[in-house]
């Protein structure tokens, strides 16, 4: 698919929400999933009304999934459908960061420990690294990543959660440990899915026994958001 042509067509149809030049390639490609978008000049019995992809996307988002379009002109297109394990029971480690309650899937957690000051090193860019059995792993401060205010700023005061997901490893820094929980994962509402919540590193939420809501962290997305793939 030619993303410049898609953009031009979307502009003609008045589907753009910001200046044309601000659209990235992937944003332009995702325009094909908007209601009313079609590059067909003629409406036939089956196509041309701009409904198909919109319905596909809406139905995937209804179950909390994601549809991503990748395409290279002249090479081919790939439609990636990501569907969450909805309503499944997961073991999580619950931590608190400021006022926010986060749950890290146990499957991603390798170790939980308090940082000893002598194991902390900084590289030239100021990235904090933590030494675990002779190897260095980056420290991700969850309060900074999520923009949540927290009183605990010293790495030695909080708790380190050493995580591994899809061969990526990092230490997530939280204020304190609440405990282990079994939770029922609920996908986020399509309203939040529209705001790219999955790309922000949250994969779902869950209602706890006291009625409060905990947010489930997607370790892999957080690490790749910070350090690239």
């Amino acid at each position: 698919m030619d993303h410049t042509k898609i953009l031009a067509k979307a502009k003609k149809k008045g589907l753009l929400r910001k200046p044309e030049e601000e659209y990235t390639k992937s944003e332009a490609l995702s325009l094909i999933m908007r209601a009313g978008f079609s590059t067909n000049e003629n409406v036939t019995e089956y196509s041309g009304r701009g409904v198909g992809m919109d319905v596909v996307k809406q139905n995937i988002e209804k179950v909390g999934g994601k549809l991503v379009v990748e395409s290279d002109l002249g090479v081919g297109s790939r439609f990636v459908i990501k569907i969450p394990l909805s309503l499944s029971i997961t073991d999580v480690m619950q931590v608190s960061v400021g006022q926010t309650d986060l749950s890290i899937p146990i499957s991603s957690v390798k170790e939980i420990f308090k940082l000893k000051p002598e194991t902390l090193v900084r590289d030239t860019e100021g990235t904090e690294l933590c030494m675990i059995r002779g190897r260095c792993y980056p420290v991700i401060r969850l309060s900074e990543y999520f923009g949540v205010e927290s009183e605990i700023t010293e790495l030695t005061d909080g708790i380190m959660v050493f995580c591994e997901d899809d061969h990526m490893r990092a230490c997530l820094f939280a204020d304190s440990l609440i405990g282990e929980q079994q939770i029922v994962v609920k996908p986020f509402s399509p309203y939040l899915a529209q705001h790219n919540i999955a790309e922000s590193g949250l994969s779902g939420c869950s209602i706890l026994a006291d009625g409060s809501i905990t947010l489930i962290v997607d370790v892999k997305t957080i690490i790749s958001n910070i350090f690239g793939n």
Binding site: Q99, T100, D101, F146, G147, V148, K186, F188, S189, Y191, L192, H195, I197, S200, G201, L202, C205, I207, G211, S212, I213, L215
Partner: peptide, 26 residues
Amino acid sequence: AITYIPRLPEYIKGVINLRGKVVPIC
């Protein structure tokens, strides 16, 4: 009580527990 969700536009206040359903608040 609204559970704040980080990294979203400011107008999305978070989510609430509405009789067992998680509902976003704008």
